[in-house]
Simulated scan of single mutants.
Amino acid sequence: MNIALIQPATGTARVLDGKVAVITGSTSGIGLGIAHSFASAGASVVINGFGKPEEINDTVEGLQRETGSKAVYSAADMTKPDEIAAMVTLALETFGRLDILVNNAGIQHVSPIDQFPVEKWDAVLAINLSSAFHTIRLALPAMRRQGGGRIINIASAHALVASPFKAAYVAAKHGIVGLTKVVALETAEQNITCNAICPGYVSTPLVEAQIDDQARSHGIPREQVIRDVLLAQQPNKRFATVEEIGAFATFLASDAAASITGAALPIDGGWTAH
């Protein structure tokens, strides 16, 4: 992915200078948008996810060149607690601290519940929910030692409402909101906040692929797929951008959001206002 396509918001201050962030699932899409926004605001970042080694190298180098912040890559598999622990250790050994954790890694599978493959259920729950438990339990000791931190869980509009055929995803995202509230309560007096961002549809390469697939399968134009299929429940009829998600995450990671914790915050064009 050409990192030059993701630009920091106009007038973005370096409100995260000196901070260190770990962002899971951040080699593309929403996670990469958040990583770029954080780095543009002055944070050093650990990115994580799958991809071709040369593309990941380009992403890391592009982040550093364009933002002036430091970036490193962890190949940790979010289904494996030992590798998650190694990713947190990498952040601490490389940068000496860990201020911000973003749990963004996620996968999807669509199937009627009585036909839902058990292995797909287990994989979705492991990556979308259990990985956040592991990153949080491993990051909290460092945050407590340094006197504070920010935890941001990327949930979904499906953390607040359901859709058919997405049993594992909806269950995992509802679970993320519950986990967010518990962590917020346990850390409320320690200058640590924990919040969930709940996006509707966001313009990413994965969504673009869905549009093309749906257009072919339904035999309808792209514009109709966007309006009447993907965005049927999204009243503003437009995709959010990764830059919007990144800017909001940067605000939640900043000192300005010190009193916001335990919240599930939609960026969904009015979807959950129904």
Rank of each mutant, 00 (worst) to 15 (best):
L179T: 01
A253Y: 12
I3W: 03
S69H: 00
D268C: 07
V242D: 05
N2Q: 06
P235T: 13
G49V: 02
P205A: 10
T135R: 03
P199C: 02
N128W: 06
H134Y: 15
R14A: 10
L265V: 14
V118H: 08
A247E: 05
V225N: 14
T180G: 10
N48Q: 10
A75W: 05
R150C: 13
P205K: 08
S163T: 13
N2F: 01
E55L: 15
N195F: 11
L252G: 14
H109V: 14
F248L: 05
I30A: 04
G175I: 11
A9F: 04
V88L: 15
N236P: 05
T79E: 10
M143L: 03
E93M: 11
I136T: 13
V46L: 07
Y201V: 09
V22C: 05
R137S: 11
N191P: 11
V88W: 13
M87H: 04
G96Q: 01
P221Y: 14
Q115E: 09
T67G: 11
Y201E: 11
L32Q: 05
P117Y: 02
A249P: 02
P117F: 00
A157S: 14
N195G: 09
L231T: 06
A247P: 01
E66C: 04
G147Q: 02
G262Q: 05
E186H: 13
G18C: 05
G49S: 09
P112N: 06
N153G: 09
A172E: 00
L129M: 12
K166S: 11
L32C: 02
N236V: 15
T261L: 08
H36F: 14
V110G: 03
S131W: 05
A159M: 02
A43V: 05
Q210C: 02
Q214P: 00
V110E: 02
L231W: 07
